[in-house]
Amino acid sequence: MDALLNILISKANYWLYIILMMIGLYGIMVKKNLVKKIIGLNILQTAVILFFISVGAKEKATIPIIEHGNDTVHAAVSASHYINPLPHVLMLTAIVVAVATLGVALALVIRIHQQYHTLEEEEILKRIQET
């Protein structure tokens, strides 16, 4: 019983990220509205980013900024005292690229609305076949 509880506490985080990821995937697949699809895409994206950040987390460690008082003295730094900075770097750039791609996606949505006057997927397909 205790072993089961231990697994639950150490893995519950991952399971919640997977739920979040699946909500985003469901939004992309099932929702008919294009803006809703983009929101689903962003939820999926943030869930993946959340997973990466949690991979880098360490217990009993502090944020990845080295204590610095005087720049001339370089005290020895132990890796176990600081959180892994590598996932943070990768995900920081990913977030900014996400907003740029979001801009392009919304530009496409506005173009589609100018052309077909609707955002519902089935209506758009119907109007494409009519013309």
């Binding site: 697994i7 150490s10 893995k11 985080n13 991952y14 399971w15 997977i18 949690s54 991979v55 880098g56 987390a57 360490k58 217990e59 009993k60 460690a61 990845p64 020895a76 730094v77 132990s78 890796a79 176990s80 600081y82 892994n84 900075p85 590598l86 996932p87």
Partner: peptide, 25 residues
């Protein structure tokens, strides 16, 4: 698949034990 992951916050997890110690130190 998540059952094979290292426990959350493990300092010895594979992600934190190869490249990042060099960066930190």
């Amino acid at each position: 698949g998540s059952l094979a992951f290292p426990p959350w916050g493990d300092p010895a997890s594979p992600a934190s034990s190869h490249l990042s110690p060099y960066y930190i130190e």
